[in-house]
């Protein structure tokens, strides 16, 4: 069951990455990256149990904090330097 849950999380992460690539606006991408990050936290803690090494949980805690700070950081950046054409840009 642990392995099945891990596979499900991996599929969801692939879906989030697809949303990052097809866009269309900047905020969709930031949202998808945020979701990818929270799913990574779950993946790390599941993998820790699959491999029988629960020490991985420390990394999961740190990762959830870094994920939050990175999202807020990107949004602060977009507050200061306005992405006016984000709907059309193909970056």
């Amino acid at each position: 069951m642990l392995i099945a849950a891990t596979l499900a999380i991996l599929v969801v992460m692939i879906m989030a990455i697809m949303r990052v690539f097809i866009g269309p606006t900047l905020y969709d991408r930031v949202l998808a990256v945020n979701m990818f990050g929270t799913k990574t936290v779950l993946l790390i803690s599941l993998l820790g149990f699959v491999m029988g090494r629960p020490e991985f949980l420390d990394i999961a805690i740190v990762y959830s904090l870094i994920n939050f700070i990175s999202v807020i950081g990107v949004l602060r950046y977009s507050d200061h330097f306005i992405f006016k054409q984000s709907g059309q840009s193909k970056k």
């Binding site: 499900a8 599929v11 969801v12």
Partner: peptide
């Protein structure tokens, strides 16, 4: 989780 992924 899968439902959320399909939703996005």
């Amino acid at each position: 989780c899968l439902s959320g992924g399909i939703g996005i």
